[in-house]
Design a protein around this nucleic acid. Structure first.
Lengths: 237, 237
DNA sequence: CCAATAGTGTCTATCAGACATTATCTA
DNA sequence: TAGATAATGTCTGATAGACACTATTGG
């Protein structure tokens, strides 16, 4: 039998395959807190519980897994996040009551303001402070996935400024530093933090400043390429 | 409807789901070369082409995705690799002629000797030098997956000694250094390389030596925990 | 002895940590 | 002026790069 004939006769429904979903851990930074976007499940299983935005691949319309995630996130936030990276896939027989299931999990970052208005129109989606999420009983294994995402983002805070994607386009250095401190879980030396970012020329001075009860802080914007930059030397763990 | 009833009536065959496979990029180091294990495909599609070891999840017997990979690798090599880590999932409508397909790709490392005898009994599996693999026309998108795995391993060579899992249990420092040099693609300072490994106490001196036409090299063994160790400062890229 | 390979000594450059000091705003 | 927050000056310590040097084998 040649390949053409094989494909003509191939019917995937003859083979048992796992369920395939995508899930996104979308972080943001607001009011000095890390927050994650959660969605109240409208359907079984785990109906009524909160969980990560995500869902099944639409074989008709999605060309890639990433398109599926982007579509799902846009439904909930109104926009596509400026940072989206695959985190890990989790697949086993236990994680979904419907049967053997694989989820491809993504980590995403966006500014709180960028979608605040849209989210307020979607009753079932909400930003929740990460500290509180830890106490909740989430759907499926979403708690574990959030922990994975957080740990990965903590690592990135040590050797990149990727967390900046969780801030508005224009931000101050003290803001970025505090976000890194929250992720890493300890205070950083401001001199060290500024120095490495200055030397690598990762930010653009907008010329504007923002006052916050003391000396005004310079407002910066990320360079296009700065997300890809990694420092050769990490901050202390 | 409650959840129990929902699950009783749930039939996943009513929903279209992508095909799910796993693939492993298994590297080793032999004769001063990086090699990758490839398998000649016995079935359509791409029958006769070489590709990565892997295949479909067995919903009956595999409890997790990682079990699937371990099973597949054991079939080809006779053993389970000492290093196995998820690389990335690739899912889109184009990569498999049978339709929308997701593969969960893993990177694995093992010693060449550990499975040389078994592989010689499996006619369709073979170690191929990575340089030559680049010229081949592999099945599916396996060429791209190999490139991803190689790039990831290159990064790890800059901040860890994970590549050591591609060596026999007992090895010399010059061997490990050369492996890192092949991965990184440039010569390293032996002083720097030795110093950081010594200071981090990652290896155990076996007390034995191996002669290679000059001064004999000390034979080392990895500590249990050394795979998890990351240097705070990377080697130069 | 020489050639070959393994391993060391030591200087320099870079950069993060620590922390004191200065700058610039508001009340 | 005082208090708050932002930004800088400057010293120290850790560690990678460079490269010359010594050590240990076989022929």
């Amino acid at each position: 039998m040649d390949e053409k004939q094989f494909l003509a006769e191939y019917n995937k429904h003859h083979y048992d395959s796992p369920l395939v979903t995508v899930d996104a851990v979308l972080f943001t930074y607001h009011e000095e807190c890390l927050k994650v976007l959660l969605v109240e499940r409208a359907n079984h299983p785990d109906r009524g519980k909160w969980g990560l935005p995500g869902g099944f691949v639409d074989l008709e319309h999605d060309k890639t897994l990433e398109e599926t995630v982007r579509r799902k996130l846009k439904e909930k936030t109104g926009i596509e996040p400026p940072y989206l990276e695959q985190l890990q896939s989790i697949g086993n027989a236990e994680r979904d009551k419907r049967g053997w299931s694989v989820t491809v999990a993504y980590t995403a970052l966006m500014a709180y303001q960028a979608c605040a208005s849209h989210i307020s129109t979607v009753a079932d989606a909400q930003w929740l402070a990460l500290d509180k999420v830890g106490q909740m009983d989430l759907a499926f294994d979403h708690q574990a996935i959030i922990n994975l995402a957080r740990e990965r983002m903590r690592q990135k805070a040590l050797y990149s400024i990727i967390p900046a994607y969780a801030l508005p386009e224009i931000f101050t250095l003290p803001e970025l530093q505090h976000l890194h401190e929250v992720l890493i879980g300890k205070a950083l030396q401001k001199k060290s933090f500024r120095r490495r970012i200055e030397q690598a020329e990762l930010l653009i001075d907008t010329g504007k400043k923002r006052s916050e009860g003391g000396r005004p802080a310079v407002l910066y914007r990320m360079k296009q390429s700065s997300g890809a930059y990694t420092f050769v030397r990490n901050l202390e763990d």
